Computed example of a mutant assay.
Amino acid sequence: MTTLAESASTPDTVPAQLGWATVDTADGPFTALFDDDGVVYASGWVDSPEYLRALIHPALRPEALVPRPGGAVADAVRAYYDGDFGAPARVTVRQHSGPFLVAAWEALRDVPPGPPVTYTELAERAGNAAAVRAAAACCAQNAAALFVPCHRVVRSNGGLGGFRYGLDIKQSLLDREA
């Protein structure tokens, strides 16, 4: 796993612009925002890079977005849909928040495809078993869907919980990885 998630301290560098690319997938258009090094800042099943830009923490949000070839980022999305479910975890992600959310995003990147984990299990993996609600917040505030696989987390009763891009896509991803 490769991640550049950041703690609550102020980021040293913020790119003036990010590139974006959209890939057609079985679940609809998937767009990613990334820097010159292919580090993902935001992604999801939308065709609007501006929607994703708004999800980036203000301390990391760029002023401009520029369409670019997707390179390794787009290749990872295609590889995922071709059955290499670990491909997105090999792409670096940059998000900014407090220590628990950063730990939870890191823990999410270690959740393998297959049976999903619960919010309780995610809290334990992130180092604070009592922080179940914060684990749910980690998923809700995750700007880099698929690269930080919040779709792999469900309620303790097995219910899907929520998903920014719709429960139909979450179920499709879980079915694909089963």
Rank of each mutant, 00 (worst) to 15 (best):
A8M: 13
A8Q: 15
T10D: 14
T10I: 15
V14W: 01
Q17S: 15
Q17M: 10
W20G: 12
T22H: 01
T25M: 01
A26R: 08
P29R: 00
P29M: 00
A32C: 10
L33A: 10
F34P: 06
F34A: 07
V40D: 02
V40I: 05
A42M: 03
G44Y: 00
G44M: 02
V46G: 02
S48I: 03
Y51R: 15
I56N: 02
I56P: 02
L60T: 06
L60G: 04
P62N: 08
P62K: 03
L65Y: 05
V66T: 14
G71I: 03
A72H: 11
V73M: 00
A74I: 00
D75V: 05
D82R: 14
D84H: 06
D84R: 08
D84M: 11
A89C: 08
V91F: 00
T92C: 14
H96I: 12
P99V: 15
P99Y: 14
F100R: 06
F100I: 07
L108V: 07
V111Q: 10
P113I: 04
P113H: 15
E121M: 10
E121Q: 15
L122K: 10
A123V: 09
E124M: 12
R125T: 13
G127K: 05
N128T: 13
A131N: 12
R133N: 13
R133P: 06
A140D: 14
F147M: 00
F147A: 01
V148E: 02
V154K: 08
V154L: 09
L160N: 05
L160K: 04
G162W: 01
G162C: 00
R164I: 02
G166V: 04
I169S: 01
K170H: 09
Q171M: 08
Q171K: 15
L173P: 03
L174M: 11
